[in-house]
Structure formats: structure tokens, C-alpha cells
Amino acid sequence: MKIAIVGSCLTRDNFNSKFNANYKMFFECVAHQHQANILSLMSDAIPTHGQNLDKYTGFRLKHFRSELTKEFLEELSIEKPEYLLIDLYGDIYCGAIELGNGNYLTNNTMFKGIPVYDESNGKIIRVTDGEYFDIFKKKFNDFYKYVMSVTPKTKIVIVKNKFGDKLSSGHNLSKIRLENGIPIINVKKLNELWEKYNSFLINQYKFRFLDMTDNDYLLSDNHPWGKFYVHYTTNFYRDFFNKLQKIAVDDYSKKIIELEKSNKRLKKKVKFYENESVTHLIKRNLLKVKKINQLNNYIKGRT
């Protein structure tokens, strides 16, 4: 079953054998737009020439290149996944840089060293700024229309999530980061905004959602990518995977029910024709011939 992702490692890691060993038995991740926000994704593509991307390889190269080229949009139209999972990490955590003419770049510090990021003097806007929500609503609507135009059967699922701050060891992540001179976030405030944005999308577009906010998951002290606000202990990934499987199973159950209904209707038609008398069959076909002749006469009369 094909899935695509707009979001961060909190969603993408569920399709990595380090976290869910047997995920390939059920899902294939065919496209991923990593940590980009919706404002950037629906902006004009930026030429990669002169952006020093040749020094990167693998996942990092794909991440940086897709941020500029918006190639994810074409991948969606080609792959036509059954599910598109969206987590709004790129909007909530990163914010955006204004590039002018309604275009934006994700304000991700990992882009340091890329000229379009380093040399940008545009205004940085964040979800804590009132204007961000208005821009987001317009850009997301553009994105939704695009998805429906190129892959209308794809089901969009919002991943509801929240930042954590408590490690499995009992320590506080923000305290550790402060002690090491690493910037921290206002977990409570950003979680409130994340809920606001998720609720808007779910209510406005009637999207399904995968709720990971119903449990206070602990952050991992030994996560492969290090300690961070969305790097959880293993039970997070197990629960995520189970919830996604339930969504898929429910959908297939509905398809089976529809097929059974269709099959019953077909059986009724077959039974009718099997039991039809010869006299009725002749009358029915003569009626068809009569209608065809009437149509032909009508057409001849017009010419």
C-alpha cells in the first residue's frame, strides 16, 4: 500500500525498519517532503544551480533539493499514493522566510550553507505571529486543490501530535538543552498552536486523523537521531503503526461491503435474466429495436 508524507521524522520514522521492523509487509513510502512547511511547499520552485548542493549526498541531499525544487508535488502525481500523511512540524517548529511575490522558504537552520538561505534578508514569520495562519490557510487550500487534481483517490490523513519535554530517564529535555547552550522551545505554547492548526484542517476539510496526542509519550534518551522534542520511545512508533493499520483495515472493510452490495445487485440481474420467459425476452428486444429505429428516423429527418 503506497503512502506519501509531508512532515518530519515523527511520521517518517514509522516507515524505517529501525522503528517498525516489518513495515514493508504493509506499506511503501513512495514520496516524502521532509520538514517543509506548507508555505514553502506551495511556493515557486528555486533553481538548484549555485546552491552548493553537490557537497551533500543521500537523505540530506534529497531533503535540501526537494525544499527548493518542490519535486514532491510531481512525485505525488506520478505515484498516486493511497494515503497522504501530513504532520505540521515544518510550520509549527520552523516557520518561514519571506522571499517576495508570495513565495517562502522553510526557516530550517539545517539549510545553513545554502546561498538562498544564507543570503536571504526576508522577514521571518512564525506560527506565533497572527499573519502566519492566514497565509497558511490560503497555501493549504492551494495544496489541497493540487492533490485532488492529480491524485483524487488519495486519502489525506492528519497526524495529530505534540512536542514532548520529558525523557524516559526522568530528565527534562529543555533543561538539558539550556545547560548545553542549545535553543529551547515553548512546548506548551507550540502544542496549543499545533492543536489549533490540526483542528482547522480536520474541521474545514473533514480529514481523517491519526491521533498521537491521547498519550503523553516520553522522549527517548537513546534515539538514533539524538534527544529531541519529537524523538520518542519505541511505544510511540508501535502505536502509530497500529493506528494507521486500523485506518487502512477500516477502509478495506468498507470496500468489501460495497463489493458485496454490488455483487448482490448483479446476482439479482442475472437471476432475472435466467428466469425470463422467451416471450418477455422477445418483447424486450423488440422494444430496443423500436427505439433505435425511432432514433434513426429522427436523425434522418434532421438531415
Rank of each mutant, 00 (worst) to 15 (best):
D142C: 09
P115H: 01
N101C: 03
I135D: 12
E131H: 15
F136D: 01
K138C: 08
F136T: 08
D118Q: 03
G122V: 08
L105E: 09
V157L: 11
Y146G: 04
K153S: 08
Y146T: 15
Y117G: 02
K153A: 14
T109V: 13
G130K: 10
M110F: 13
D134Q: 09
I156W: 13
I124Y: 00
A96C: 00
Y104T: 07
N121H: 02
N107D: 06
G164F: 09
S120G: 04
N121F: 01
Y104N: 04
N107L: 07
Y104Q: 04
T151R: 08
P152E: 15
Y117T: 02
K137G: 03
G164W: 03
F133W: 03
K162C: 00
N141F: 04
K145C: 13
N108R: 15
P152C: 11
G100A: 06
T128M: 07
K166W: 12
Y104M: 06
P152W: 12
K123Q: 07
K112P: 03
M148N: 08
I97C: 11
G130V: 14
F133E: 00
E131G: 14
T109Q: 15
M148I: 14
F163A: 02
V159T: 13
T128S: 07
G102T: 10
K160T: 01
G102H: 09
I97L: 13
K155M: 10
G130N: 12
T154E: 13
K139C: 00
L105H: 05
K139A: 00
G164R: 02
I156V: 06
I158R: 13
M148S: 09
K112F: 04
V150Q: 05
D142N: 11
N108C: 04
Y144G: 07
A96Q: 03
N108G: 05
K138M: 14
L99V: 04
K153Y: 11
E119H: 04
N107H: 13
N161P: 02
Y132M: 03
N107C: 03
P115W: 05
D129T: 13
Y117F: 05
I124V: 10
G100Y: 03
M110V: 14
F143T: 01
E131Y: 08
M148Q: 11
K153I: 15
E98T: 09
R126I: 06
K160V: 00
L105M: 14
T106N: 08
I114D: 07
T109K: 12
D134A: 12
K145H: 13
V159L: 11
K139E: 00
V150G: 01
E119G: 09
I114V: 12
S149W: 14
I125G: 00
K145A: 14
D129H: 09
I125Y: 01
G164S: 08
D142G: 04
